[in-house]
Design a binder for these strands. Structure first.
Lengths: 357, 357
DNA sequence: CCTTAAGAATAAATCGGTTTACATTTGAAA
DNA sequence: TTTCAAATGTAAACCGATTTATTCTTAAGG
């Protein structure tokens, strides 16, 4: 709430003070070497003396793009995208860019507007984590505006942009093999039918792998279309008449709901039923039992996306225009107390697949 | 990865196409009324025809500040600051600004650099959530650069900037009164001695209120200086020889650790020991028992900070330079299963205060 | 019909840098 | 000492808008 009386120093003020031209100051500041050492010294002294800081936005005015990278995520509240943003911020700065973070708030319409915003801001490149998939409105607009970019997370592959995502299918298959090894023959997958394809991919990959390596494994899929609110009720209803030896939750909150539902109905975990979750988080190591989970390599995701984008930005005039790359980052499995060898066999129940409303 | 062949249309192109001057186009676009309707129509038609979008950064070049508001938070991974950022993003856009979100990654040195970045970006105002407090490096630099701003969250009051924070003391006192009412006479507070003063404020306010309204209440304070890793061990050690009727966790993760530690040692919650946490989150309603918690009014915090900042920006030339305002937003209490009336009295133990290493 | 003031439109300056095109030094070879 | 190329330096154009100072219209009043 203070009024700034003194006008900010410009590059011309520095030039005058140093006794050289503005062009020379510009060269010195950008590290161009064709400047006599004596003059460079004078410029540095002047800059120091008057505390000059150049305006990075004005600097980019003459270029076609500015030293800015755009990041569009579906939400900022989740740990996942928060970590992505935090990591990318560091990477961008190390590369001399500043990161402009915006959230589409899970709205495709907004996603489209944000893509346009990145365009008018003349960002050097945009990393888009689409609300739905690589076929959403945002990606389309990016293409039609010929923007440089990369896609991340809820994405499979694209003809134009490089894509970087977690290997959902591979991780699910790995869990399937693990559960089979541990003797589990009755698994329940729980998931939410979101706009994002991720959860569905996880489910189908699990089923396929299970089918292949262990045909006698019963796999129930509890996939709810509705809002989360009813999720617990559906699960509870299911557990009234079904007794899986292990539950594999395909989304983070489901893991928590399953754990608390076990407790509510007096099921001991892992003695009565094991639990594995997709997506690891801090609290899973402090619950009792600590929960086994698929760990998504969030930092690596960000690293890879960033390097793909940078390649796109810097190799702009690369005539080859090589085909886009589709990168899948493998997940690791964090084993904790909630998953054990299958308990002694109980009377077999009839296979059954519940498909939510 | 596509190269953009066609140069972007500028305001001059639009002017030429519409058969008027650039100045006229500028007026039409900014809604200045001294333009003949016929010309305005032509401009709009031309804009539409060539898909012109003005460059918001070039537009602000001539002004002393741009239509940008800066937001500096200590981290982006937490739900708390994620929600703050998400809310402010919406508010800023509604007011015609765009929000530039950056994270200081809990580093005061970085916080300082980010304040400087906001300055060179010539933002209209900056909302700073300091790493430490209003007396940190970032706030100091903001003052010495005469920047417009507002402080949020880890902050009490300031002579220059308006401050907006949660009423930590009030909430703690409210919990103290509630626990007293419910008959609890042995409470354990658990907290982490962070750089932020928040947790310490919560502890001392609780003690003071307890002292006042219920002098016979025993209040143990378990405040750990070290990293979180050892926290669980300290708590476990404490519970070996102490039997509080309720634990009040002063930070979110502590709530989870307490809950799981209860289970590990076979303490039934809430029958054997009640639990209340500071800072509510999604998972607390799905655990068993569901956890009672102090709900921080995150959105309101953001709303208030934003309106204070906007007042600062727009009332810039307000000669009165009214004293800064210190706003405390009250918290509510979400009662769930984990807190009950005090169980039948057990043999009294000797009062004791444990102060972590 | 002539003045004159308000109303509209615009050329040019400006913001703070970069880049270009050209001028001036410098230094080594002739 | 002369010559020419390489090394340095700079004025001016430029980026894409806004704003100012000025000119050109228009319309009311005498």
């Amino acid at each position: 709430m203070i009024s700034q009386p003194t006008k900010r120093a410009s590059i011309h003020d520095v030039a005058r003070s140093a006794g050289v031209s503005a062009a020379t100051v510009s060269k010195v500041l950008r590290g161009v070497t064709t400047v006599k050492a004596a003059n460079a010294q004078k410029v540095h002294a002047a800059v120091e003396a008057m505390g000059y800081k150049m305006d990075p936005l004005a600097a980019g005015l003459r270029q076609t793009t500015r030293k800015i990278i755009g990041l569009i995520v579906p939400d900022l509240e989740s740990e996942f995208f928060g970590k992505i943003a935090a990591r990318l911020e560091i990477l961008a700065e190390e590369a001399g860019y500043s990161l402009s973070i915006v959230s589409s708030h899970e709205s495709e319409a907004r996603e489209e507007r944000l893509v346009e915003r990145m365009h008018v801001w003349r960002v050097a490149g945009t990393i888009l984590a689409p609300v739905r998939s690589e076929r959403g409105a945002g990606t389309q607009l990016m293409k039609s505006l010929s923007m440089t970019g990369a896609l991340i997370d809820r994405v499979v592959s694209d003809d134009i942009y490089d894509t970087v995502a977690v290997d959902n299918a591979g991780a699910s298959a790995k869990v399937a093999r693990l559960l089979a090894e541990k003797g589990h023959r009755h698994v329940t997958l729980i998931g939410l039918n979101e706009v994002s394809r991720n959860v569905r991919t996880r489910a189908s990959a699990f089923k396929q792998e299970a089918q292949t390596i262990c045909p006698d494994m019963r796999v129930d899929v509890l996939m709810i279309d509705e809002r989360e609110d009813n999720f617990r009720a559906h699960l509870s209803n299911y557990l009234d008449t079904n007794y899986p030896s292990v539950v594999f939750s395909l989304f983070q909150k489901g893991t928590l709901i399953a754990l608390s539902e076990f407790r509510r109905r007096g099921l001991r975990c892992p003695q009565d039923v094991s639990l594995v979750g997709f997506d690891d988080t801090e609290w899973m190591q402090v619950t009792y039992p600590a929960v086994s989970a698929v760990v998504q390599p969030i930092s690596k995701l960000a690293d890879h996306a960033f390097h793909r984008l940078l390649a796109g930005i810097e190799g702009q005039r690369d005539g080859t225009n090589s085909a886009s790359i589709c990168h899948l980052e493998p997940c690791s499995l964090q084993l904790r107390e909630s998953l054990v060898e299958v308990p002694p066999v109980r009377p077999a129940e009839q296979p059954q697949v519940i498909q939510g409303a």
